[in-house]
């Protein structure tokens, strides 16, 4: 019988022994070294049964299948657009996944998206070399015009969305802004300029207090108090 060395919800650092014995299983952010399970990155340890995984607390975004991301169009190719998704890798948005219009060969693609445009897309596929494909066919996927872009740490995105979207719907309802949160740490806010600023301040507060309990109440008080 193996034994645990670290506890659930502990902050762990790379190279730290987490558990001993073959009856534990290494999950995301961990690896097996002989008998031990060792941390690969800084993060919070989560134990579920025999499996150990780490929830990273920092780091750049790496494209993952089915993620909703907000991209910035950086280049136009023969058959689509290249987007910067706040990561080490580009995402490719092919013409056929961007629109249902019929586009003739050699047509001017800037009619749809120009360089510098912001687009909410979903990642459809990622190769081993991290080449990512994106689509705009899905609910809420659209070109983002107007509003403002806020960059947040990708590891804090789950807190900004909240459980079943509770936090982001709180923000939407109290500020009346339209908000799209990308998994890549890009947030788009559009509405009345003052309300936009309020939403931005609230998001910054969520980022700062991401680790604390009762965050929704805190944000509710913040939004209510500064109305």
């Amino acid at each position: 019988m193996g034994k645990m060395i670290a506890n659930d919800k502990d902050i762990v650092v790379p190279g730290e022994n987490l558990a001993e014995g073959m009856d534990f299983l290494p999950g995301f952010g961990t690896y097996r070294d002989g008998d031990n399970i060792v941390a690969l990155m800084v993060g919070q340890l989560r134990i579920s049964g025999r499996a150990l995984k780490i929830v990273p607390l920092s780091g750049k975004y790496v494209p993952k299948k089915d993620d909703l991301v907000i991209g910035n169009v950086t280049d136009i190719t023969f058959n689509g657009w290249l987007m910067d998704v706040n990561s080490a890798y580009h995402a490719m948005l092919p013409m056929k996944d961007a629109t249902s219009d019929f586009i003739t060969r050699g047509a001017d693609l800037t009619k749809y998206f120009k360089i510098g445009d912001w687009v909410a897309t979903q990642i459809t596929n990622v190769t081993s070399q991290k080449l990512a494909d994106a689509t705009m066919k899905g609910p809420g996927l659209k070109k983002l015009t107007g509003g403002r872009i806020i960059y947040v740490s990708p590891s804090k995105v789950p807190r900004i969305i909240g459980r079943q979207g509770s936090m982001v719907s709180l923000l939407k309802n109290t500020t009346g802004c339209r908000i799209v949160v990308g998994q890549n740490g890009v947030v788009w806010v559009d509405g009345d300029p003052q309300k936009e600023q309020l939403a931005k301040d609230a998001i910054r507060l969520i980022e700062q207090e991401a680790h604390t309990q009762g965050l929704t109440e805190k944000i509710q008080a913040f939004l209510g108090g500064s109305k």
């Binding site: 790379p14 190279g15 690969l40 990155m41 990273p56 920092s58 780091g59 750049k60 590891s155």
Partner: peptide, 11 residues
């Protein structure tokens, strides 16, 4: 490097 969240097998 650890702070940047880069995977490290060792320190």
């Amino acid at each position: 490097l650890a702070d940047a969240g880069i995977p490290m097998k060792d320190f």
